[in-house]
Structure formats: C-alpha cells, structure tokens
Simulated assay, not measured.
Amino acid sequence: MNWIILLIAGLFEVGFTFCLGKMKEAAGGALTLWTLGFFASLSMSMFLLYRATQNLPIGTAYAVWTGVGAVGTVLVGIFVFREPATFWRLFFISTLIASIIGLKFVSSH
C-alpha cells in the first residue's frame, strides 16, 4: 500500500509541475486557478510522501518520488508543452525508469 501512496505522491508532483507550466502562459483568473492547483498538488504530494516514508526507507522513497515526478514531468513536457523528444532524452528517461523499478525490487519493504 505504501508503494501505491508513493506513486500517487509522484503523480501529484507531476501535477504541480504541470500547473507551473500553465502558470507561465496564464493571466488574471486563470493564473489564480493554476496557482491554486499548484499549491493543492504540492500539498498533496508532500503529504503523501510523508505518509509513504512512515513505512518505507526515506532514501528509497525520496528517490522513487523524485523519479516518478521527473519522468512524468518530461512526458507532460513532450506531449502537452511540445518539448523535443530526442533520442538521448528518451534514452535517459528510460534509464531513470529502470532505476525506479530497480529500487522497488531491492527495497526490503
């Protein structure tokens, strides 16, 4: 269950970085809504990370949380914000995914 909580925390991290990207383009009321979404996602991400670290090693949990957020943010950048999807970018994201999976398998929890 803690691994699921950690995965959801990472997805909320993607949520707050997505809101950051939208805040750059927004003004007025839309900026306010994206800012609220940013803080709501940030709060949920941190709270769920806290919950996951109650039973998972902090080093592993933090690395996985950051990795899930990084991979998700790069994918959002590619598919939503039209950032480049170069070979090397995808190659290194793949190695990050492999590392996240590896940490799950070697974790004692």
Rank of each mutant, 00 (worst) to 15 (best):
M1S: 12
N2H: 14
I4C: 10
I4Y: 07
I5M: 08
I5C: 01
I5A: 04
I5L: 13
L6Y: 02
L7I: 13
I8C: 00
A9Y: 04
G10Y: 00
G10T: 02
G10D: 02
L11W: 04
E13Y: 02
E13A: 09
V14C: 05
V14N: 01
G15F: 10
G15A: 15
F16P: 01
F16N: 03
T17H: 08
F18P: 02
F18G: 04
F18S: 06
L20G: 11
L20H: 09
L20A: 09
G21F: 01
K22A: 11
K22Q: 15
K22P: 06
K22R: 15
K24L: 13
E25L: 15
A26D: 08
A27M: 08
A27L: 09
G28L: 12
G28S: 12
G28T: 09
G28Y: 12
G28Q: 12
A30N: 13
L31N: 11
L33D: 01
L33F: 04
W34Y: 15
W34T: 09
W34L: 09
W34C: 11
G37W: 04
G37V: 06
F38D: 08
F38L: 14
A40G: 07
A40P: 10
L42D: 12
L42H: 11
M44W: 10
S45P: 10
S45W: 03
M46H: 04
M46W: 07
L48G: 00
L48C: 08
L49P: 01
R51E: 10
R51T: 12
T53S: 04
Q54H: 11
N55E: 15
P57T: 12
P57M: 08
I58L: 13
G59A: 09
T60H: 02
T60V: 06
A61V: 05
A61S: 11
A61I: 04
Y62M: 08
A63S: 13
V64F: 01
V64T: 07
W65Y: 10
W65F: 13
T66K: 07
T66L: 14
G67L: 03
V68L: 03
V68R: 00
G69C: 06
A70D: 07
V71W: 00
T73P: 06
V74K: 08
V74Q: 10
V74H: 07
G77A: 11
G77M: 08
V80L: 12
R82E: 14
E83W: 01
E83V: 03
P84Q: 10
P84F: 05
P84Y: 06
A85Y: 00
A85E: 01
T86V: 07
T86H: 12
T86A: 11
F87V: 15
L90K: 04
I93V: 15
A98S: 14
I100L: 05
I101R: 00
I101F: 07
G102P: 00
K104M: 04
V106Q: 11
S107T: 11
S107C: 12
S107Y: 09
